[in-house]
């Protein structure tokens, strides 16, 4: 009974549209006329004929494979620094977290466009330091995706907070014992911190990977909604959006959405399958 509001929300706003999109993925639907059943045509096109889809996948995989590990590394490093310094930690924590709050917003993406533009901050600094004139980073096919990866890394705040909480759970006496036995800092990190933090790393990895696959806002704004230049920032989600709302192929876009779901599910499954080799839970073996 008390679940009713939640259930209505779930069935009306999540399950209903999800099933509808599954149906639409087997149709030809342009929004203006009623959907027409087309069987597996959409999936066939996606698998065998759609060349832009291949490009969108490669852009998205590049983005995920670079941004997630780098972001987690930066997050972990900063979490360890913050874990040690006691004075003013709340302030630094808030400061480092700030980009994550702002990063997904349109305003930051607009700012990014300015910073990495031809006359932007980055090029002005580059000119001051080296006397070289840099390109318009956001508008160059070789660098545009990199600026988006940098933007993603910069939003290390939420995994950092989670790492920090994880680090606080590591018993200090383990470090003390290790120091007495003469283990170096690096050895302590490898033998104590990493294993005990593994569940947290695992959680962050899965979560950030899913987030990265769904990246949309930044690419949409930075590339002016076109995934350019030369489709170099055409993320999967951006391509899906374009097919649905610019080319009015809602049926095909629904098929793309389901394929994305499958891809994310596969990646998550891989992460879970490998996790038993490197993630140790404290209550194991009891």
């Amino acid at each position: 009974m008390f679940l009713l509001p939640w259930l209505i929300g779930f069935f009306g706003l999540t399950l209903g549209p999800t099933l509808a999109s599954l149906y639409l993925s087997f149709t030809d639907y342009d929004l203006l006329t009623s959907p027409r059943w087309s069987g597996l045509e959409n999936y066939e096109y996606a698998f065998f004929h759609d060349r832009r889809l291949g490009n969108a996948l490669s852009v998205t995989f590049t983005y995920v494979l670079w941004s997630v590990p780098l972001k987690l590394t930066v997050a972990l490093l900063l979490a360890m620094v913050l874990d040690r310094s006691v004075r003013g930690v709340a302030f630094y924590r808030a400061t480092f977290y700030l980009p994550s709050l702002l990063g997904a917003s349109v305003a930051i993406a607009v700012l990014w466009r300015q910073i990495f533009g031809a006359q932007g901050l980055v090029n002005q600094m580059l000119f001051l330091l080296t006397g070289m004139k840099g390109p318009a980073w956001v508008a160059h096919p070789d660098y545009a995706l990199t600026t988006l990866i940098v933007l993603a890394i910069w939003q290390f705040g939420s995994p950092m907070i989670i790492f920090l909480a994880g680090l606080r759970q590591v018993p200090q006496d383990l470090y003390e014992a290790a120091s007495m036995d003469g283990a170096s800092g690096w050895r302590q990190f490898r033998k104590i911190t990493l294993p005990l933090l593994a569940p947290v790393i695992f959680f962050n990895l899965v979560f950030q990977t899913i987030e990265a696959f769904k990246a949309f806002t930044q690419a949409y704004i930075v590339s002016g909604g076109q995934g350019g230049p030369v489709d170099s920032t055409l993320f999967y989600s951006l391509y899906l959006y374009e097919e649905a709302f610019a080319n009015f192929r809602m049926g095909y876009a629904s098929a793309l959405a389901w394929l994305l779901l499958v891809i994310i599910a596969i990646f998550t499954a891989i992460a879970f399958a490998t996790s038993k080799y490197w993630v140790y839970y404290e209550d194991e073996g009891r």
Partner: peptide
């Protein structure tokens, strides 16, 4: 040059 021109995403102010 191409990268300068590509900063114009179709908005008049760009």
């Amino acid at each position: 040059p191409a990268d300068v021109q590509a900063q114009d995403s179709g908005k008049m102010e760009e």
